[in-house]
Nucleic acid binder design. Sequence first.
DNA 1: CAGAGAAAGTTTGAATTCAAACTATTTGGG
DNA 2: CCCAAATAGTTTGAATTCAAACTTTCTCTG
Lengths: 168, 168
Amino acid sequence: MPATVKVESGKRPRRETAPARRVPPPEPKLGALQGFIGFNLRLAQDASFRVFARKSGQRDIMPGRFAALMVLRDNPNITQSALGRAIARDKSSVTPLLQDLQRRGLVKRMRSTTDRRSVTLTLTAAGARVLQDLILHAREHDRKLDEIAGPSKAEFVAILRRIADHMV
Amino acid sequence: MPATVKVESGKRPRRETAPARRVPPPEPKLGALQGFIGFNLRLAQDASFRVFARKSGQRDIMPGRFAALMVLRDNPNITQSALGRAIARDKSSVTPLLQDLQRRGLVKRMRSTTDRRSVTLTLTAAGARVLQDLILHAREHDRKLDEIAGPSKAEFVAILRRIADHMV
DNA sequence: CAGAGAAAGTTTGAATTCAAACTATTTGGG
DNA sequence: CCCAAATAGTTTGAATTCAAACTTTCTCTG
């Protein structure tokens, strides 16, 4: 009896309900979420971050690394804690960040002579060179943001600063 | 800042260089960094996120969870991919996020009847209740942001949206 | 000047996220 | 109709980050 053959191809035994017409599912509505500043803040930061990282991709330096190098350049002999405060990162995040920059030869770390708990940080010549390059990328990146912000840029940045300061 | 001045005091055998006068190290200058929109964007997002998470702390629901629940409420039977697109998260981040929400009983996941690859998501009654509560917190949180933004809020949000959309 | 407490860094553990590789299913072109 | 390519979701690995615990050193009070 060929009865056994009916097994496969005839019908997929697993589908109980009708296949239903192929309707490309509509993209979801964001609804009330769109009105929340916090949500829009995250989307914007995310987009900005991603573009910066992609652009400076060759150098493999993310925005956070760039910020650290900038602070190091403008504050020779700064300590790790102070650096962390400046770029708003926990000290336990600063440690591996600096180990990486040191491994790349961009930063030098020395025990402070006045406080043996602290580490004194300085940009190396190589670090200054890399930073010089990154600044060009950062400026171009920020120019795009400037364009998008338009004439309200000053007020826009002022609000961002107030949020960072007053939200704690 | 020659922190080194030689000194007498006792003789801690380990100290070669002098202790030097105690100068509270000046807080670092942010310098050019302050002018970059991208940097300010990160600080603001960070602050906003942290406050939201702390406020809704009891429920242990971070802003990302809140956004997901909102989209689920407004788009019944949405798929994971569509959700990910809506809240700008990779599908591989959406998987564990939803497993967590399911484990908490806030979301139900079912294989789609029309496309057996997809998962169909719906908010449970418990999920709707929790969301209801979270919305109150989110509104209060955003009210603070509104205050900070002041009368420029509309333009501020418009810029954030343009950044999210046009930076890609 | 001695000891309590603060501060700088490091380590460890957990959370979040992306990207890439993989599985299962569906679609579309020849 | 069939197979190549696309798509949905999961898994895995790496990166980033915070918080808490810990070590070492410093400060300050009594």
